[in-house]
Structure formats: C-alpha cells, structure tokens
Simulated assay, not measured.
Amino acid sequence: MEFRHLGRSGLKISEITYGNWITHGGQVEADAATACVCAALDAGITTFDTADGYAEGRAEQVLGKALAGERRGGIEVFTKVYWPTGPGANDRGLSHKHIRESIEGSLRRLGLDYVDLYQAHRYDYETPLEETMEAFAAVVRAGQALYIGVSEWRAEEIRAAKVLADELHVPLVSNQPQYSALHRVPETEVIPTCRELGISQVVFSPIAQGVLTGKYLPGQPVPEGSRATDQKGGGAGFISRWMKDDVLERVQNLVPIAADLGLSMGALAVAWVLQEENVAAAIIGASRPEQVRDNVQAVGVRLDPEVKTRIDEVLAPVAVTDPALTRSPDPRP
C-alpha cells in the first residue's frame, strides 16, 4: 500500500480507501461485509469511510464491529453528517444541534472515542455556514474528530468554508466528490480551487458503480447479484445513468488497454483517478473480498501520459464534465 497526505495536514491515509456506501447493512450481510473489511486490512488498507446516513446507521455499526480489535492508531476512520437520521425536523442538515447529536450517534455505532475525519455530506442551504463551521469546530475541540471535510460542495462553498475554518483554527483538509474517468465534473472548478487551498480529494465511485469494470455488456442482461440488480439498497438507481449501450460500448474499448498494462478493468479505473495529484485516495466498495484484492492492483500504478490520453479519448463522447452537476439539495424557491 502507498500513502498520501490529506490536504496540507500531517495525516497520511491509504491511497485506496475502503468505503461501505450501499453495501454494508444493505446489499450484503454482516458476515460478508466483515470479510471484505478483513480483505482490505490484509491488503494494507488503513483508511475506512462511512456515513450515518448509510443504511440508516447500520453501515457504521457493521464497520465498527468489523474493525473492533484493530489498533486504533493503525487505522483512520471517516464518517459524515447531513442526511436524515430520524423523523424529526432537526434530524437532518448541518445545524449545531444535528451535528452535535450526530457525532455522538456515529461514535456510539462505530464503538470509537473519535473519528479521524468528520465530513459534511452535502451543503446545507437552510443553515448559516458560520453556524455549521462553529459546530464542526466544537466537535474538533471536544476531541471527537481530528479533522473536518466536506462532500460534493461547490468550489465557492469550499472557499467560503476554508475562510471560516482558518479563522476558527479548524483543519478543513478534504472534499469527497464523485470522480471517475466517466464522471469528470470536479476537474473544472473544484479541483483547482482545492489545490490552491491545500484541500485534498477523497473520491467516491472511481469505477462508476462498477460500470468501468467492463462486466456490463451492451445489449446483454445485467449479471445476477450485481449492483445493477440491487433494488433494495438503491444500487440499481445510482448506476442506471451509465447503463446505456453507447457508454457500455465505449467502456469495452478499454479492455485492450487494461490487458496491455496487466491490470483488471477495475484496477485501471482506480489507477486513472489516482493520477490526479490532488486526489489523496480513491474509495472502493465491495460485496466480495476478491473485489478488494482486484482493486488494490492500482496501488502505485503510474500511467504513461499517452495511455491516459488514450483512455480519455475513448470515453470523451460519454464522459460527464459539467461543473454545475456538483450541487446539494436546495429547498429554497
């Protein structure tokens, strides 16, 4: 495993990070989830990402149990706050009240005294940013989190948050956007802004919910047990936008490129996002341990510029690039 600094902080994280969005507490049973976490640890992964909104908190519980017994100083655990955690009007968002109650709930479910990174899962347009950042500062000063981050915030929102974080002496070190060779939305505005501010990307869906593995074939039924069949956990909905023949045909054109490099398609996709210096880690998910072992082939891979250009040219007609697609739910009229 190789490690990268998170922002301008002294914290190093594994460049492959294990995340349990959709899978833990939803798509796979607890025993299978634990097996995947064990495979991640065996592969040298030390960084684990979750959120209180995943499977209504069950994902945090499963991850906490799977990591129980690991030396706390040898792992980094990230979680997030924003999405609803209950039926009440204040059981959501980034108010001081919800952040305070959510960090306590996350720590309880994870079985930890603190998390290494606490992230705002989306931007909250109903709460003043000053209140949100003061609440995060209180979490850090209480020793419940060491660093703070955001997820899918726009460039101007990140910049405003960084100003307040500096004033409050709170280490805002990361953004967690969706980023892959198919979803290149952060490249135009978010990544340049974060590079300037000393904030890293910890990216999710580097293999586009599995599409970049090449297992989905144009004109063919989806494989049984794949994410595209997961109606209960929501995986099918997330992947549906990529399940188009023009996209799948383009992805199949990457097969010889991966073969020439001796990489699986999944590892090639993960390696692609790790070529961006502002990316500290690529988050992988898994429903089977062998998927973890497959994706970690990307560790330390450096793609020649001409190879990356070939990949970009193949996917350019179907890749998404519009920076306006980075947005949070906005209830305002």
Rank of each mutant, 00 (worst) to 15 (best):
T127L: 06
D322V: 15
F48G: 04
T188W: 02
G19S: 09
H24Y: 14
P186N: 01
I16A: 12
R250M: 04
S205M: 00
G19N: 05
T309H: 14
P256A: 01
S174N: 02
Q297D: 05
L6F: 08
A208D: 10
K80T: 14
Y82W: 14
S200W: 01
R332G: 13
E60L: 06
M243T: 15
D245W: 06
Q291W: 08
T46Y: 10
A258P: 03
V307K: 00
S287Y: 06
Y147I: 10
P128F: 02
L182F: 00
I239W: 08
V81C: 15
Y179Q: 01
S180A: 04
Y147Q: 09
R288N: 10
L274E: 01
V320W: 15
R8A: 15
E131S: 08
A228L: 05
C194E: 08
Y123R: 05
V307R: 01
T309F: 04
A43W: 00
Y54W: 09
R72Q: 02
P218T: 01
A89E: 10
R58F: 08
L110Y: 05
K244I: 15
L172G: 03
T85E: 03
D124R: 04
V251N: 01
E29V: 13
A267K: 01
T46D: 10
E276K: 07
L146N: 14
A269T: 14
G74M: 06
Q209P: 05
M133P: 00
G235T: 14
R92L: 12
L263H: 04
A142R: 06
A267T: 13
